[in-house]
Design a protein around this nucleic acid. Structure first.
Lengths: 362, 362
DNA sequence: TCGCATAAAGTTATCGCTAACGCAACGCTC
DNA sequence: GAGCGTTGCGTTAGCGATAACTTTATGCGA
C-alpha cells in the first residue's frame, strides 16, 4: 500500500514512518523542548497549581504540538495505583449484560476510570485465564458477574488485595461487595405468577449451561414454589448451549411432543421465549389461552412481540451505576457492603389467562 | 465489617490484610524463594525451554504457591509491546455491536491479546477522551467503529504508530485498515426493495444523532435511490437520541398524523421498527398491506415479532473475526488492507405486499 | 538587615520487568 | 586436547513515569 519508491512529500503519518522511526514523545522530550526538567512537566499534569501559569501554558502547548500521550505503564508502575477497572462478564449477547457494562463504563468514566473488559462465555477455565490476565494489569478494582467462581479465581481475587464487586447475584457468600438480587426468588415469583393465573402444568425451557449457576437458582425457585403449591413436578427441557430464538423453538417442539399437557412455560431468557412462542404458533397453540409463557430478562423486544411477553425486569442500569459507585467508594476506603437491587415482574398478555392480580416482588 | 479488635486467627484474605500490609509477590520474591536470579524466573515464563526442566518445575511451583501474577505494567514498560488491543464502539445497547465485540474478544484471546473497551455513545468529545486514554496504555493495536472521527482523533491515531482497524463502515478514506461495508448501498437496497414491492411513498424513521454518520449515509442511499425511481421525496421523521421501541412508536404516530399517505417506512434500526409496528397497530394500519416496514440490524427478535421484520443483516461475527485477524496480521508486519464484508437483505413478511422477487445485495 | 516560611523548580531513587551481554561448564570435532 | 559452539544461568542497564528530597528564588515581619 505504501512503498518506499513513493517519495511524494506531504504524506500522511504512515508514510513518514518509513523515513525515520517514529519516536513517541515522552515527558523528557517535552521537558527538553520547553527547557525544564521532566518532573516539572509531570507536575504540570498532576498538580498544575504547583507550576507557574506561564510555564504551564508553554508546557501544554508543547504537549499539544507533539501529540504527547502519557505512558500509563510507567505511571502505573511508579505510582501507587492504576485507573483500570477490570470487568468480567459471562456473555455479551442479547442485551444480557450490555446495558450493565454501558452504564458502568460511563459512570466510571466520570471518575477517570478505564474499563478493561473480558467475556468468559460461561467457561470457568477462561474465567481463570481472564481474571489472571486482568490482574496482571494491576487494576484498581474488579467487577465480575456472579458469585460462583472456581476456587482458584476466588483465591486470586482475594489475594489480589483490590476491591472486588460481584454483580447480578447476591444469593450466597461473596468475596467483598455484591450488587444484585436473589435468583431463586425470581424463579419462585415466576411460579407464583403462573399458578395465580391458573396454569397448572409447568415447564422450564431454555439454555442451561453447566456453569450457569444463576439459571439453576431460578429453576430451583420455580420448582420449590411449584411443589409448595402442590403442582406436578416441573418438566425441564434444556440444552447446554447459548440461548436463542431458534433454540427456544426447537425445545418447545420437543417438549410438547413428549409432554402435550404442558400449559405454562417459564423460559430462561426472553430470546428463548421469542422462539418458544413462534414454535407454539406453529403447533397451533394459542398464547396465553392454551399455554402461558413467562421469561426472564426484559429484552427490548419483549413488549413488542405478539402477544407481549410477561417477564422479569432486573434493573440493569441501577446495577451498573451502583457498581460504579461501590468501586469508587471502596477505592477511597469505604466498607464492603452487599446491596440488593429490585427487580419487577412485568405482567403482559403472554400469561393473561385469568384476571387475577399480578404478583410483584421486590 | 472487619475491625481490628477481631483477632480471630484463620480469617480470610481480607482479614489478613489488616495485620501486615499484603505484599504482592514479584519476580524477585519468586527468585529468592527458589534461589535463582530474577531473570531466570522471567525466562521460565517467556522462554521456558531455556531453563532446565527441573528448575522450571520448582519455579512454577513457587509461583503457584505465592499466587504470583506478573506485573504487565512493568513488562510492557520494559518490553517492546503490550498485549492490549483498544476497542472503541459507539454503543453497546440493543445488540448493535455486542456480537462484534464478543467475536473480536474471543478471537483475540486465542492470541493472548486483551481487550480494553470504550464506549463513546456517539459523543465525539468522549471519543477523543477515550482514544487518548486507551493510547496511554500503549496498546498493540486499536479497533474502532466507523471511519468518521474528529480531526484530533485521527491525528492521535495516526501519530500513535500502531495499527488501527476501522470497523463497520468502509465508505470513505480510512486511517489504515478497514473492515465493514458501504452504508449508502444499504439505504439504496432498502429503497429498491420497497419500490419493487410496490410501495410508493417512503419515510425514514428513527434515531438520528448528529454524529451518526452511518445512519446519514443509509438515509442518503435511500433518498438517492428513491429519486432515481421518480418517487416523491422521502419524509424523514427522526430524533437525535438513542433508538428504542418507544421512540419508534412515538415517531410513527407523529409521522402518520402529518403524512397520512405514507405506505412504507425504513427504520434506522430494528428496535425502532419494533415500536413502529406497535404504533401502526394502534393506528389500525395493517403491516404489510397498508404500510411496509423495513429496518436495519437484524436484531435477534426480528424474525419473531408479528409480522416478521424485513431487515438488513450485517455479518457481525465475520467483521469481528476479520478484525481480529487483521490486528494479528498488522502486528506481525502485514500490510494495511480494506475488506468489504457482505450483508444481506432478509425479506420477511413486513414488506410482503406483492410477490416480486426480493432484491438481494452482497 | 537578618531570618525564616513558602513557592517553584531540579535531583535522585525507585517501581518490576525485559533485553543484551557475559561467563562458566560441557560436549563435540579433528 | 586445543578450539569452538551450546546450554544455562547471572549481571547490568534501561523502559517512562512518580515520590521524596534538595536546592534556589521570593516575600515578609521583626
Amino acid at each position: 500500500m505504501t512503498n518506499s519508491t513513493d517519495g511524494k512529500p506531504g504524506k500522511d503519518a504512515w508514510g513518514e514512518k518509513e523515513n525515520k522511526q517514529r519516536v513517541v514523545p515522552t515527558l523528557a522530550s517535552i521537558a527538553e523542548q520547553v527547557g525544564v526538567s521532566a518532573n516539572t512537566v509531570s507536575r504540570a499534569l498532576r498538580a498544575p497549581n504547583t507550576v507557574r501559569p506561564e510555564l504551564r501554558k508553554r508546557i501544554n502547548i508543547a504537549m499539544e504540538e507533539l501529540n504527547y500521550v502519557p505512558n500509563r505503564l510507567a505511571g502505573g508502575l511508579s505510582g501507587t495505583r492504576t485507573d483500570i477497572v477490570g470487568v468480567v462478564v459471562t456473555s455479551l449477547y442479547y442485551s444480557e449484560f450490555a446495558s450493565i457494562i454501558d452504564t458502568l463504563q460511563s459512570s466510571l468514566l466520570e471518575h477517570d476510570l478505564q474499563v478493561m473488559l473480558a467475556n468468559t462465555r460461561y467457561n470457568p477455565d477462561q474465567e481463570l485465564k481472564l481474571v489472571r490476565s486482568i490482574l496482571s494489569w494491576r487494576p484498581a478494582a474488579m467487577a465480575i458477574i456472579g458469585i460462583d467462581h472456581p476456587p482458584k479465581v476466588l483465591e486470586l481475587l482475594k489475594s489480589s488485595g483490590i476491591p472486588t464487586i460481584e454483580m447480578w447475584d447476591t444469593s450466597g457468600p461473596v468475596i467483598d461487595t455484591a450488587i444484585g438480587f436473589d435468583h431463586q426468588a425470581v424463579g419462585a415469583a415466576q411460579a407464583r405468577h403462573l399458578i395465580d393465573r391458573g396454569y397448572r402444568t409447568l415447564a422450564f425451557v431454555g439454555s442451561l449451561r453447566e456453569n450457569d449457576r444463576r439459571a439453576r437458582k431460578r429453576l430451583l425457585g420455580l420448582e420449590t414454589e411449584a411443589i409448595k403449591a402442590g403442582i406436578t413436578p416441573v418438566i425441564t427441557c434444556t440444552e447446554p448451549i447459548g440461548g436463542s430464538p431458534d433454540l427456544g423453538e426447537k425445545l418447545v417442539l420437543d417438549l410438547l411432543q413428549t409432554h402435550p399437557g404442558i400449559d405454562a412455560i417459564a423460559c430462561n431468557s426472553d430470546v428463548v421465549a421469542f422462539g418458544v412462542m413462534r414454535g407454539l404458533r406453529k403447533l397451533g397453540k394459542r398464547v396465553p389461552e392454551d399455554v402461558g409463557v413467562i421469561a426472564f430478562g426484559d429484552n427490548e423486544a419483549a413488549a413488542c412481540i405478539t402477544p407481549p411477553l410477561t417477564t422479569i425486569r432486573p434493573d440493569r442500569e441501577r446495577i451498573g451505576r451502583l457498581t460504579a459507585d461501590a468501586i469508587v467508594a471502596r477505592i477511597n476506603g469505604g466498607e464492603p457492603q452487599t446491596t440488593i437491587v429490585d427487580w419487577k415482574l412485568v405482567a403482559r398478555e403472554s400469561t393473561q389467562r385469568d384476571a387475577v392480580e399480578p404478583t410483584n416482588a421486590g
